[in-house]
Amino acid sequence: MLVRIVKMSFSENSINNFLNTFESNKNKIKNFKGCQLLELYRDKKDPTIFFTYSYWDSESDLEQYRQSELFKTVWSQTKPLFNAKPEAWSVDKIESLK
């Protein structure tokens, strides 16, 4: 299982635009081939910082998403809203306790 973590920072006046974009596209992303989970988090201390966690069956599934029209559309709407360069990590899930 591949986990993709993306940290994004927005100016305060762009947050609603970001949240609207996420709301409009979250089910499309979650239903993309190979996506098992999509989560959105907001930093407790800095409400302008958000994280997405997405779980993918494989690196190739994530790459297919990143090359898709869906990603290009979402990213083109989100990218202008950033107030800092986004950071992203692809990590292997080793263990999960519930």
Rank of each mutant, 00 (worst) to 15 (best):
M1A: 13
L2R: 02
L2S: 07
V3N: 06
R4F: 02
V6D: 08
K7C: 07
K7L: 08
K7D: 06
K7A: 05
M8N: 05
S9I: 05
S9A: 12
S9F: 04
F10H: 03
S11T: 03
S11G: 08
E12N: 12
N13K: 14
I15E: 02
I15Q: 07
I15T: 06
N16T: 10
N17V: 01
N17A: 12
F18T: 03
L19E: 06
L19C: 04
L19T: 02
N20L: 07
N20S: 09
T21H: 09
T21D: 10
T21E: 10
F22Q: 07
E23K: 08
N25F: 03
N25R: 03
K26Y: 08
N27Y: 11
N27H: 10
K28F: 14
I29K: 06
K30R: 15
N31E: 15
F32N: 03
F32S: 07
F32K: 00
K33I: 06
Q36P: 02
L37P: 01
L38T: 07
E39A: 15
D43M: 15
D43S: 15
K44A: 15
K44H: 15
K45L: 15
D46T: 13
D46E: 09
P47C: 11
P47H: 13
T48R: 03
I49P: 02
F51G: 13
T52R: 00
T52W: 04
Y55H: 08
Y55N: 05
Y55Q: 10
D57A: 11
S58P: 01
S58E: 08
E59R: 11
E59L: 11
S60W: 04
S60K: 00
D61G: 00
L62P: 00
E63R: 00
E63M: 12
E63T: 03
Q64L: 09
Q64F: 00
Q64T: 03
Y65G: 00
Y65I: 00
R66H: 04
Q67K: 10
Q67A: 06
S68T: 02
L70A: 11
L70N: 12
F71V: 06
T73I: 11
T73K: 07
T73D: 10
W75F: 12
W75C: 05
W75V: 08
S76A: 15
Q77A: 06
Q77V: 05
T78P: 01
K79C: 10
K79P: 01
P80G: 13
P80I: 12
F82E: 01
K85S: 13
K85C: 13
K85M: 13
E87G: 09
W89N: 14
W89M: 11
S90D: 13
S90N: 06
S90K: 00
V91Q: 07
D92M: 09
D92A: 09
D92S: 12
D92T: 11
K93A: 12
E95G: 10
S96V: 05
S96A: 09
K98S: 12
